[in-house]
Structures are given as C-alpha cells and as structure tokens.
Design a protein around this nucleic acid. Structure first.
Length: 354
DNA sequence: CGTGCTGTTCAGATTACCTCA
DNA sequence: GGTGAGGTAATCTGAACAGCA
C-alpha cells in the first residue's frame, strides 16, 4: 500500500480558505519601486523598515527614480483617489541619511512643506511616545496632528478609501510609518493593527490571488492607505498562515487515516484468523493454494479468492464488513497482501455467490 | 553562450508588539 | 493591575529567478 500525502506543497491549490485557488497565479514579477509618497507626498526618507531592514526589502521604496517613472508611464493609474503631491526626488536609499534626519532638518527653517509636516505628524503620532518629546523635536513644526488630520481628511474625501475611521486609521498608518526611529535610538517596532476594513479588503484580494504583482500591490496600498511593503508583508504572512492551516488540516487528516487504517488492519487480522481456522477445519482446503484477499476496485469489497476454487469458495464480505476507505478522495487501491494479483474481473464475488 | 552582478520576490523562521482572558 | 497565551505585523535570511553587462 502506498500512502502519499503532500504537506504544504505550494504548488497545491489551497482551497479550504480561498475557495478559488485556481486563480492563484504567479504573476510575472516586474520590479517597480513605488512608494506611499506617491499619493501622499510623504517623504520616504521616513520609510519605516526600509532603511533599517536591508536593501532588498527597501526595494519597495528605494528603487531608482527611473524605474519608478517608468512604472508611472507604463502603469495605468487604477485609482486616482488621493491628492497627488509632487513626488519628491529622492536619492537611492543607501545614500539617504537616517530617517527623519537631514531632510527634515533642511526644512526646519520655517518652510513647512507637506512632507515635513507629515514627517512630524508621523513622528508625533508615535503611540507610546510622550507628546512633550515630539514638541521638543525640531521636526515637529506646528501641530503634527493637525497636519496629519487635515491631510487625511482631504485624502478621504470623495474616495473609497477603505481605511475608514479616518483619524484612527491615520494614527495607525502613521504610527506604523514612524515605527523605526533609529535616529533617537528608539528603534522600536510599533505594531500596526490593520482595521477590519483593511483586513477584509485584503482578504478579499487574497481570495482572488494569493500573490501580488506590483500593480496589484500598489493599487491595494493606495486603496488601503498602506505602504506597498505593508501589503506585501500582509500577503506573505497570509500565505504563511494559509499554509500552516493547511498543514494542520493535513495532519488531522493523516491522523484520521491512521486510525482508520489501524482499525482496518485489526479487522483484517481477525478475518485472516477466521479464514485460517476455516482452512484447518476443512481437510480439502489443505490441498488448495493459498487464499488471497483482493479488493474489487469498482465496489471496494474485499473478497477471498482461491485459484483452484474447488468449492467455488469465494467469500464475499458483506456490506457490514466493507472496509472503510481511509482516503475517500483519492480512492487508493487496497491490497491487504502485497503479492495480491491485479483485481479480478468485476463482481467475481457475485458470480461466486451464485 | 556562459558568467558574474544586481535587483526583486518568495518561503520559512523568528522577533516583537498588541490584545485578551 | 500583572501575566501568560495567542495573533499577527514586521524583520531577517537564504534561495530562486530575471535582466543586464
């Protein structure tokens, strides 16, 4: 008997959650560097983990300007929901100072650009940080919260931003963006909690495709007011969760199969003993070749067959003793004895019973 | 064509934060 | 209020792959 089970095979569609796993597809990956600053004018020097985590992940936000512009040209903007502040030209991330540092400093002298305000807002909305700290910060010119609130209010007017709960969402987003404050040695990893709306939307999207191409990622990020990197991370974690759950389901299934097979084995052993007892009680049987057990592939009934069949003794096991198929989906062949011949003609047990 | 480099995405493992009982 | 468990966003690491020189 051969037991095959694939655990966590990524090539296997995951159906128990997504229901339409057939749509899962690996889209051709074309690099794009897009950034949340696109729609918000947020200076990406404040990119959350991109500076701290390494260059690879920074690809979302720190790709070259050319690439980004190419992407702009080649990508139809799917959602024009947000007011588009000019995209600040940026140098590559590896040439950038630490987040919130020199760029902000250059803007300190009275020129309160939207970016600076956002940066300050982002910083000021650090959930666990005392307000006094941000006030003392050189970056927090004016009221960060006002800047932030106003900007997002505008952002949410007339669009279908699914962030909902504007202020709350703003806090979420910005606190997540300001999470890495290496400059001050905080370097705390603030926990962003996605709103229900965001999660639901991401779930819906995940049902359609468990992987994202750059366009999809950007569109989702735009719609949800998240950074593309956050969308990407969410999908990665979501895939991991799906796989984990699938593994759990598979393990449970295997467990049940094991129990079923154990029971079946026990039953067959008992059957074998009975057959041997029958064989010894019948002297003619001693001349007969060994009895074998086979399973009819069509009806899955186990039958004992004897080649000589002097007594035409083919015992059909009635439905009450029909073996339980532990693999209802795969319908594996079941030969209790490995040397059993290929399945006999159909319904041999029926003819024998006559 | 083969090779090395670079950039990107992914899975897997892990960490860290947050919520809740 | 303190605490541990569980959920999950974020991070790290290595592999795979594509594009380019």
């Amino acid at each position: 008997m051969e037991l095959r089970l694939s655990l966590g095979d990524s090539s296997k569609p995951v159906e128990f959650l997504t229901q339409n796993s057939a749509s899962e597809q690996q889209n051709p990956i074309k690099k794009n560097g897009f950034n949340f600053c696109m729609e918000l004018g947020l200076n990406t020097n404040g990119g959350n983990q991109e500076n701290k985590s390494h260059e690879r992940d920074g690809g979302d936000d720190d790709t070259s300007e050319d690439t980004r512009e190419d992407f702009m040209e080649n990508t139809p903007i799917q959602l024009d929901l947000l007011p588009r502040a000019p995209v600040p030209r940026r140098t590559p991330s590896h040439l950038q100072p630490l987040p919130w540092s020199s760029d902000n400093g250059s803007s300190e002298n009275g020129s309160i650009s939207g970016n600076v305000g956002l940066l300050a807002a982002a910083r000021g909305l650090e959930v666990n940080r005392p307000p006094a700290e941000e006030v003392s910060s050189a970056n927090s010119v004016g009221s960060p919260f006002q800047m932030d609130f106003g900007m997002y209010t505008n952002t949410n007017t007339g669009n279908e931003n699914l962030g909902g709960n504007d202020v709350v969402e703003t806090e979420r987003v910005l606190s997540s963006r300001a999470s890495d404050d290496d400059e001050n040695g905080f370097n705390t990893r603030k926990k962003l909690r996605l709103s229900k709306e965001q999660s639901a939307f991401l779930e819906e999207s995940f049902k359609e495709h468990s992987t994202l191409n750059p366009k999809q990622k950007l569109a989702l990020a735009n719609q949800l007011n998240l950074r593309p990197r956050q969308v990407e991370v969410w999908f990665q974690n979501r895939r991991a969760r799906t796989k984990l759950k699938q593994t759990e389901v598979d393990c449970e299934y295997l467990k049940r199969c094991c129990e079923t097979l154990t029971e079946e084995n026990r039953r067959l052993h008992k059957e074998l003993q009975e057959l041997r007892a029958l064989k010894t009680s019948n002297p003619f049987c001693t001349q007969l070749p060994a009895t074998t057990l086979t399973m009819c592939p069509s009806c899955e009934r186990v039958a004992t067959t004897s080649a000589a069949a002097t007594n035409a003794r083919t015992t059909t096991i009635d439905s009450t003793t029909k073996p339980i198929n532990p693999f209802p989906l795969s319908r594996p062949r079941f030969y209790p004895f490995s040397q059993a011949p290929p399945p006999a003609p159909h319904h041999h047990h029926q003819s024998a019973a006559s």
